[in-house]
């Protein structure tokens, strides 16, 4: 089964990339854009078939390597 790990900069951590994207979108004429945050999604193909176990495994991977919890938060979905 697949697990999707979404890694985002933590609130309070400067995200210049998100800021630049927001600025560019406004420049292109899109109105009403508030804060923009840029993160990443890591797609994992897992042999595990039990969604609960797969999610736990992916969370462990995120804590250990995929996210740096000093600056990033993560969430995992499976399916």
């Amino acid at each position: 089964m697949k697990a999707f790990v979404t890694v985002m900069p933590k609130a309070g951590v400067l995200d210049p990339q998100g800021k630049a994207i927001g600025h560019a979108l406004t420049g292109l004429g899109f109105a009403g854009i508030g804060e923009v945050r840029a993160g990443k999604v890591i797609e994992l193909e897992l042999a595990e078939t039990d969604p609960v176990k797969a999610k736990a495994a992916a969370e462990e991977m995120a804590r250990k390597l995929l996210a740096n919890t000093v600056i990033e938060s993560f969430s995992v979905t499976v399916g």
């Binding site: 210049p16 990339q17 740096n68 000093v70 600056i71």
Partner: peptide, 17 residues
Amino acid sequence: LAEAGLLPGALLRNASL
């Protein structure tokens, strides 16, 4: 060193990107 926890904090993308 920061990623390994030997020093605190993290090195982010340069402000100018």
